[in-house]
Simulated assay, not measured.
Amino acid sequence: MAHKHPEEAVFREFLIAVLLHNEAVADRLGLQPVDVAAAILLETRGPLPVGTISEELGLPSASTTRLIDRLEKAGYVRRVRGERDRRTVTVELVEGGLDDYDAACESSRRHLDAIALHYGPEQVPLLLDMFTRVAGAYRSATKELRQDET
């Protein structure tokens, strides 16, 4: 069945490409796709409490614990206990921990750099705004889906 809106088909093709790329990167690193998402989250936001990672990824705490175990075992992150309250645990990237990730993304970076040549500097704010809004829309939709599960 064909879509009524061609732009929807384009966007769905974009999503498929991103999802498959993330899965291929995860396979290359011996991780789960959600593990890669967690590592990227830590790279962009810095060290995070376990609860924040759980909330941001929409995972139950037990699943988040297993995810952190996998990343720690693979040498990407470490747990850091709070100095004042030893019960609080923050997760941080290990120095050089994402070197393998960066290497796995080298080809995508090269292809994306080539695309950037098609856009002028005046278009960058619009594109970044769109990505920010799309990410927010998907985060909201994901929260709604997760709430429906409970």
Results as ranks from 00 to 15, higher is better:
M1N: 09
M1Q: 09
H3L: 15
H5N: 15
P6W: 07
E7I: 15
E7V: 15
E7A: 13
E7D: 15
A9F: 11
V10D: 13
V10S: 15
V10E: 12
F11E: 13
F11M: 10
R12N: 13
R12M: 13
F14H: 09
F14P: 06
F14A: 11
L15F: 12
L15M: 12
V18K: 04
V18I: 14
L19C: 14
L19E: 11
L19A: 12
L19P: 02
L20W: 04
L20A: 11
N22K: 14
E23H: 06
E23C: 06
V25E: 00
V25Y: 00
D27T: 01
R28E: 02
L29K: 01
L29N: 03
L31K: 00
Q32P: 08
V34L: 06
D35I: 00
A38V: 05
I40R: 08
I40D: 10
L41D: 06
L42S: 02
E43C: 04
E43D: 09
E43W: 05
R45F: 07
R45T: 14
G46Y: 03
G46L: 07
G46T: 04
P47S: 09
T52M: 07
I53P: 03
E55Y: 06
E56G: 10
E56Q: 14
E56N: 07
L59H: 03
P60Y: 12
P60K: 13
P60E: 11
S61F: 05
A62S: 08
S63F: 05
S63V: 07
T64Y: 01
T64M: 03
R66C: 02
R66G: 03
R66W: 04
R70C: 02
E72T: 10
E72L: 03
E72I: 02
K73W: 04
A74K: 03
Y76V: 01
V77C: 01
R79A: 06
V80P: 05
R84I: 12
R84S: 08
T88W: 09
T88D: 12
V89M: 07
V89Q: 04
V91N: 04
E92C: 03
E92Y: 03
L93P: 03
V94S: 00
G96L: 03
L98P: 00
L98T: 01
D99R: 05
D99K: 02
D99I: 02
Y101S: 01
A104T: 00
A104V: 00
S107P: 06
S108I: 10
R109S: 06
R109W: 07
R109H: 08
R109F: 04
R110C: 08
H111V: 06
L112R: 11
L112I: 12
A114K: 12
I115F: 13
A116T: 08
L117S: 13
L117K: 14
H118L: 10
H118D: 10
G120D: 07
G120C: 10
E122S: 09
E122V: 11
Q123H: 09
P125N: 06
L126Y: 15
L126N: 09
L128S: 14
D129C: 11
F131D: 11
T132W: 13
V134Y: 14
G136F: 07
A137D: 11
Y138M: 14
R139W: 10
K143I: 15
R146S: 13
R146G: 08
R146V: 14
Q147R: 15
D148P: 10
E149A: 11
